[in-house]
Write a protein that binds this DNA or RNA. Structure first.
Length: 416
DNA sequence: ACTGGACCTGCCCCG
DNA sequence: CTACGCAGGTCCAGT
């Protein structure tokens, strides 16, 4: 495969308060950006590969076109980049507003500046988040890569240089890995995923039950909807209308629909409520005061309403900041986590739980507590996750959980 | 309306 | 080093 034709690097004036590339491209909005070098990122678009770098004052970009470059391919990369990053929206002003309305946001946002919503292609966004259900980010990325390599259009290759953060730019570093050529592809068109082989092929590629969802959804969009349907949801439908349309598709529930609304359809008030956001709502905002057993559709909407009332029209944008702060990938920014001890206790009968803490100082921090119980003779389940650490970041304290009739008990450790 | 299960698979951490 | 739990949910059948 050819390396293609790369344009010269160009730049747009963008501050780190407006955009933090390394955060936004890794926080699970898009699953397709690859680190192509130290502080360099690349992604295949419809007819070109776009590569990005960032300085404190500028966003640097360049395009690599397939060779020979199509005559139609004039370099409108700047427009694509501005659109993709929603750069017309003043993120710093929004942070000010959210910080004023919410002390918790203000506290968390300090370490997470420049977290903005991308404005992705609705089709890609839809399929990407169908892949995300009951799944982990690592595998989602792999699945989307396979999808593009199998059904997308080859766009050429990019030379990847060492991305190991432990071996920075110094060329003499022994740790550095040799450059490699990495192939890039466009995201598959709608039609490309409607061929009869798609479900079986994706199953073989490890998509599991999502293979059927993707195939069915592609067929629905292609055959049962007007041309350009998804894009009309952006301009011609409001949030509720778009959401209602999206959950008609196979494999698309309220959470995935909100992701598509927020990340590709300009619905800034859409708040995708996943396990993280549910956790944030109950832990940091005392939502429901522990009364809710599960995330039913009613509760789901109530959580979104809570955040919309708190943060206003662009609540989905604000939510992304706190969601990102909650990701383990970035956990080192809020606290220097070394070790976490998690204790899970399950019991078939009534359970007494006491959590003893040395109340010596406020360095001890209750990170994460979830309690679920069902009335009657049924199963009571208590899950408590408690982190305590000293000023230097060392975890020093442990949780004491006392129970009766314990039937199952696990303890696990994590490194951060 | 709400609840409980099943669901593909690969990664991560536990014994 | 293998195994169980889990991962940015959704669908389906029963109350």
């Amino acid at each position: 495969m050819s390396k293609g034709h790369a344009t010269a690097w160009a730049q747009l004036p963008v501050s780190l308060n407006q955009l933090c590339l390394a955060t936004v491209l890794r926080c699970g909005q898009s699953f397709r950006w690859k680190a192509s070098g130290p502080d360099e990122w690349s992604c295949g678009f419809s007819d070109r590969i776009i590569s990005l770098r960032q300085s404190p004052t500028h966003l640097h970009y360049r395009a690599t076109f397939p060779s020979p470059p199509p005559k139609s391919a004039k370099d409108d990369t700047a427009e694509i980049v501005k659109d993709y990053f929603n750069l017309s929206i003043d993120l710093a002003a929004l942070y000010e507003k959210w910080s004023l309305a919410d002390p918790n946001f203000k506290k968390k946002a300090g370490e997470f500046k420049g977290v903005r919503m991308l404005r992705q292609d609705p089709w890609e966004c839809l399929i990407g988040f169908i892949c995300s259900s009951n799944n982990n980010i690592s595998r989602i990325g792999q699945m989307v890569d396979k999808l593009c390599a199998t059904y997308g259009t080859p766009l050429g290759t990019i030379t990847h240089t060492s991305t190991n953060p432990l071996s920075p730019s110094s060329p003499s570093s022994e740790n550095k890995t040799p450059p490699t050529e990495v192939a890039y592809y466009s995201f598959p068109t709608i039609e490309a995923l409607t061929t009869p082989d798609v479900e079986e092929t994706l199953k073989k590629l490890g998509f599991g039950y999502r293979a059927k969802y993707i195939y069915k959804t592609a067929c629905m969009v292609h055959k049962d909807r007007p041309k350009g349907f998804l894009n009309t949801l952006r301009d011609e439908k409001d949030y509720k209308e778009a959401h209602a349309e999206l959950i008609q598709f196979m494999g698309v529930g309220p959470k995935v629909a909100d992701c598509v609304c927020l990340m590709s359809l300009d619905k800034m008030g859409a708040v995708p409520v996943d396990t993280h956001v549910w956790q944030i709502a109950t832990r940091d905002y005392k939502f429901g005061k522990g009364k809710h057993r599960s995330l039913t559709p009613v509760v789901y909407e109530a959580v979104g309403d809570l955040f919309r009332e708190l943060w206003g029209d662009a609540a989905g944008w604000a939510h992304s900041v706190l969601f990102t702060a909650d990701l383990r990938t970035f956990s080192d920014r809020l606290e220097n986590t070394k070790t976490t001890t998690t204790t899970t206790v399950k019991s078939k009968t009534k359970v007494k739980v006491e959590v003893k803490e040395e109340e010596e100082d406020e360095k001890i921090k209750l990170e994460d507590v979830k309690v679920e119980e069902v009335e009657g003779e049924e199963v009571k389940t208590i899950e408590k996750r408690v982190r305590k650490r000293g000023a230097n970041g060392e975890v020093k304290a442990e949780v004491v959980v006392k129970t009766e009739e314990v039937t199952e008990r696990r303890t696990r450790r994590r490194r951060g």
